[in-house]
């Protein structure tokens, strides 16, 4: 019986954090994975659409100076 319990819980103990009932964080209206800094006009590079699976279809340029590696064409 206890071996069955261990099988069910071991993976989580090794790879996941406990999901606590109460957590916090900033209220926000946007999808986290759809973050791209807006570049000034004239940013160069190959356009990439829907990076990270976002539904935002604006062109995103490779921009290694930003954490996401991409930025959004403001125009």
């Amino acid at each position: 019986m206890k071996n069955d319990f261990l099988k069910r819980v071991k993976g989580a103990l090794l790879s996941k954090e406990e999901a606590k009932t109460i957590s916090g964080g900033y209220d926000h209206s946007y999808d986290y994975k759809c973050f791209f800094v807006c570049c000034p006009g004239g940013a160069s590079g190959s356009p990439v659409i829907n990076v990270n699976g976002c539904s935002d279809t604006r062109y995103k340029y490779y921009a290694p100076q930003f954490a996401s590696g991409y930025c959004v064409d403001c125009s």
Binding site: E17, K20, T21, I22, S23, G24, G25, Y26, D27
Partner: peptide
């Protein structure tokens, strides 16, 4: 971490955790 899980331990407050912050959406919980 961005969910502030180390700082929202209300269940441990006062005996194991000495600081709690009801930050952001914790206020709606």
């Amino acid at each position: 971490d961005p969910k502030f899980t180390q700082l929202t331990n209300f269940h441990l407050a006062g005996f194991h955790t000495k600081y709690v912050h009801a930050i952001g959406y914790a206020k709606k919980s």
